[in-house]
Structure formats: C-alpha cells, structure tokens
C-alpha cells in the first residue's frame, strides 16, 4: 500500500515537472499584461489578435508547409530507398546504413553548419528552399529506420508468387509489399512531420534573412520579449493535439472491448 502511494507520488511529481512550463505558457496566453513577469488580469484578446498578426501567421504557414512537403518527400524517397537497400549486398548495405545514421547520431549543430557551408559554396539562395532541402535530409533517416524493419519481416515468397501468377513488378509491389509495410511508412511519416515541425537548430543555420518558421521567430523574439500571441498560438496547437490524441487513443480501446466481447460470445457459442 505504502509502496503504491510512493509510486503515485513519484509519477505526479514527474508529471508536474514536465507540465509546469506548459501550464505556465497556457496561463500566459490569458495574461492581460504584455510582459510575462506580471499578471495583469484575464483576457482573450491575444487569441483574437493572433489571426491578424501577419508575422506569426506567416511563420506558422512556413512551418506547416515545410513540415508537410519535407515529410511527404522524405517518405517517398526513404521508402523507395528501402526497396533498393534490401537488394544490396551485405557490404554495400552496411555502407548505406552507416551514411543514413550520420544525421541521426551527429550533433544537430554540426549538421546545420555543414549544410550551411554546402549552400554557401554552391551558391544556393537561402530561403524556404534551403530549409526544405535540409529538413528532407534529416527526415529521410527516420523514414528509412521505421520502414526497414517492416521490410525485413516481409515474406519474400509472397511477392515472387505474385510475379509467378502474372502480376507485374509494380502491381505486385502495390498489392503485396505496400500493405505489409504501410504501418512503418505511416510511423516514419509522422516522425518526420513531428521532427520537422519542432526543429530549430538546423533551420537556424539554413534559413535566409526574412524567412522565419515558428521556432526561429520565437528565438529572435526571446531577446525582445515574446509576443503574447505566440503563447495563444501554442496553446491552440497543444489543445488540438491533445484532443486528437485522446480521440485516437480512445477509439481503439472501444474497438478492443468490442472484439473482446465478440470473442467471448463466440467462445460461448462454440462451448
């Protein structure tokens, strides 16, 4: 009993530690006073002015656009690359996987400056394009590392059987391989999207002047004082994701209970 209480107290403490800053931000989004140092009363005005703040809305659009394009492109390139990597010999495969691991293991700051040096030397114009190229680069490994295990679990004979039965390679891929690796592709896509959305360091080095994502905008605002609209925006994002998560987590539970029931009934009938 005491053990259980201790456990729960520990969980609560960790929960408080992780959520204290988030609660702070949510509270600040309702703060009438412009500085975060003092409480000036409750207001909803930042939620209204957020949508007319072009700088923040522009940064939000950039962030979403980059995350979406980067995750789609990296999912495509990464998944196709996995098919190829599976067919390489052992030595080539370990070389390719080694290179794939570099952006994940290396310090983000080094990845950022290395891409910055590349763009400077090859006269790329810094802007949305360079951010996008960088994000695709660090997103592909996440896709490959989540699709690859699925690929390795595939039964190779199923695909060959499809070919023997007259399916073309493309048709065979879409009908036999793709459904099997789909969960890996989905989780790779989601991971890439989240990583791109939250990235600051690599964007910091590869963005041009005048182009901002939410992260870089916040970073430049830190010195001058963050606009309260930013708190409002992040509260909206947070609550949206919270609701989505609750929906996604709630549904399978319902389904599971249902199938449990069905199984029980089936057993009853059978017994």
């Amino acid at each position: 009993m005491i053990k259980k209480i201790c456990r729960n107290i520990y969980l609560i403490l960790i929960f408080v530690f992780l959520y204290a800053p988030i609660v702070t931000l949510v509270v600040l989004s309702f703060n009438k006073s412009k500085t975060r140092a003092k409480w000036g009363g409750f207001t909803l005005k930042w939620y209204g002015s957020l949508f007319t703040n072009e700088a923040i809305m522009g940064a939000l659009m950039n962030t979403l656009l980059i995350a979406l394009v980067a995750s789609v492109v990296s999912t495509l390139i990464g998944t196709i690359a996995c098919i190829s990597i599976m067919n390489l010999n052992k030595k080539m495969r370990s070389v390719v996987m080694g290179v794939t691991n570099i952006p994940m293991l290396n310090a983000e700051i080094v990845t950022g400056i290395s891409l910055m040096l590349l763009f400077i030397s090859f006269n790329f114009k810094f802007g949305l394009g360079t951010i996008l190229l960088s994000h695709i680069t660090f997103c592909i490994p996440y896709v490959i590392l989540s699709v690859m295990p699925r690929m390795q679990q595939l039964n190779p004979y199923a695909y060959e059987a499809a070919l023997d039965l007259g399916a073309g390679p493309v048709y065979g891929f879409f009908k036999v391989i793709l459904p099997e690796i789909m969960p890996g592709i989905a989780s790779g896509f989601l991971m890439a999207f989240t990583m791109s959305l939250d990235d600051f360091i690599i964007t910091h080095f590869t963005k041009g002047a005048g182009v901002d994502t939410l992260s870089t905008k916040i970073y430049t605002e830190v010195k001058k004082g963050i606009k309260p609209e930013m708190y409002a925006l992040s509260t909206i994002i947070f609550v949206t994701v919270l609701i989505l998560l609750l929906l996604v987590n709630y549904k399978p539970l319902e389904k599971r209970q249902k199938t449990d029931k069905e199984v029980k009934e089936a057993v009853k009938v059978g017994g």
Partner: peptide, 21 residues
C-alpha cells in the same frame, strides 16, 4: 500523454517558460 504530448509545444517556448518559473 506524459512524454510525447509536451513535444508538440515548441521546445524553445517550453524552455523559455522555465525562465518565468
């Protein structure tokens, strides 16, 4: 809920919030 969800609040803002605290 406890670990992944906070990551959707921008990490700079979350760190900033510790200043306030």
């Amino acid at each position: 809920l406890i670990f992944i969800l906070p990551m959707w609040m921008n990490f700079l803002l979350r760190t900033m919030a510790w200043q306030t605290l």
